[in-house]
C-alpha cells in the first residue's frame, strides 16, 4: 500500500514504553485507497508531500518507507 505524507514529527522525548526507540518519526499518511492512518517511518526521514510505501506491521504499528 502506498500513500502521501500528510504530516510528520520526529519524537525525541518518548513515552516509557518507547524510550529505547527514540528518536523516531511518527507520520499521518493519506493512503492511495483514500483512508488516513498513523504510522512510523523506517529508514530515511520524510517530509509533508513525500510518497511512501507500507513495509511491515510490527507490534501493531504500520511502518512506511520513503519511495525514491
Amino acid at each position: 500500500m502506498q500513500g502521501t505524507i500528510y504530516t510528520e514529527t520526529v519524537i525525541h522525548i518518548a513515552p516509557e514504553a518507547f524510550v529505547a526507540e527514540a528518536p523516531y518519526q511518527l507520520v499521518i499518511v493519506d493512503l492511495d485507497s483514500g483512508s488516513r492512518v498513523t504510522g512510523r517511518i523506517d529508514g530515511d526521514r520524510v517530509s509533508i508531500g513525500d510518497r511512501v510505501e507500507e513495509t511491515v506491521l510490527h507490534n501493531g504499528i504500520r511502518f512506511f518507507r520513503k519511495l525514491a
Binding site: 514529527t9 519524537i11 522525548i13 518518548a14 513515552p15 514504553a17 518507547f18 526507540e21 523516531y24 511518527l26 498513523t38 504510522g39 512510523r40 507490534n59 501493531g60 504499528i61 504500520r62
Partner: peptide, 9 residues
C-alpha cells in the same frame, strides 16, 4: 498511542 505518539507529538 500504539504507534508511539506523545502529546507533544
Amino acid at each position: 498511542g500504539k504507534a508511539g505518539a506523545t502529546f507533544p507529538a
